[in-house]
Computed example of a mutant assay.
Amino acid sequence: MLDTHCRKYIQPIIGYGAEFFIKCKLSANQVTVLALILGVSSGIFSYMNMPFIALGVLWISGYLDAVDGTIARRQGSTDFGTVMDITFDRIVEISIIIGLSLRHPELTAYFLFLACSIIITMTIFLTTGLMTSKKSEKSFYYQAGLAERTEGFLMFSLMIIFGTYLKIIVLVFTGMILFTAAQRFLEAKQLLSK
C-alpha cells in the first residue's frame, strides 16, 4: 500500500542514490547484489541479538532495492535483473525469518505460518503477473495490496526491535499478508476472467 501510494514522494531521494551508483559505474544488478548482502546480514544480526545494526542494514538494503529499480529504468532493465530482484527480496525476508526464529525457537511455528503466508501471496502475485498482459512501470504487472515491501520492512523492524511482543507482531504481519493474498486473488479473478 505504501509503495503504491507514497513512492512518488520519496522517488527524488531514491533518484539521488541511483545517480550516485551510476557515477560509480555500478549496474542495477550490482546494486541488487549489494542489497542482498546487506539484507541477509540483517538476519544474521537479528540472530546475534544486535537489533539496531540489524535494523540499519535492513533499511539500507531496502533503500538499495529501490535504487536498483531506478537505475534499471534509466539504463534499461533486463529480464534476468527482474528475476534477481524478486528472488533476492525473498532471500532477505527468509534470512530475517530464520534469524529471528533461531533466536526465538519457541516461536518457530509462528514464523512457519508467516513464511507460508508469504509463499501464498507471492505465488498469486507472480502468477498473475505472468498471466496478465498489463504492464506497470516495472518490468511486470505489479499488484498493489495492504502488505507491500515497505509494510514488510516496517513489520520486520518491529519484530527485530520489540522481541517482547514478537508473537503478536508475527501474527499481525501474517494476517496482513493473508489479507493481501485475498486482495490479489480477487483482483486476479477480475483480470483473468475476461
Results as ranks from 00 to 15, higher is better:
A147V: 08
Q11R: 04
F173L: 08
F20H: 05
I60K: 00
E137M: 06
Y110T: 02
N49Y: 03
W59N: 01
K8C: 03
D65V: 00
E187Q: 15
V83W: 14
A35T: 06
L55W: 04
W59L: 02
P51Y: 04
D68C: 01
N29I: 10
Y16D: 04
T164Q: 14
T82D: 14
F179R: 06
A28P: 11
G81K: 09
C116T: 04
L55V: 05
S101F: 10
V92D: 08
T4E: 11
Y142E: 11
I160Y: 06
Q75M: 01
V31R: 09
F52Y: 13
L26Q: 15
V31W: 14
G15S: 03
V172K: 08
G56E: 00
L171A: 14
F156M: 12
L34S: 14
F21R: 11
P105W: 05
F173T: 13
L130D: 05
A54M: 00
L2W: 06
A66E: 00
V92K: 14
V67N: 02
F173A: 09
W59K: 00
R73C: 05
V40T: 11
T32V: 09
A181S: 08
L192N: 12
A147I: 03
K135Y: 04
R103Q: 15
G81F: 11
P12H: 02
K189P: 03
K194E: 13
K189Y: 13
I53H: 02
V172R: 05
D89C: 09
I91E: 13
C6M: 11
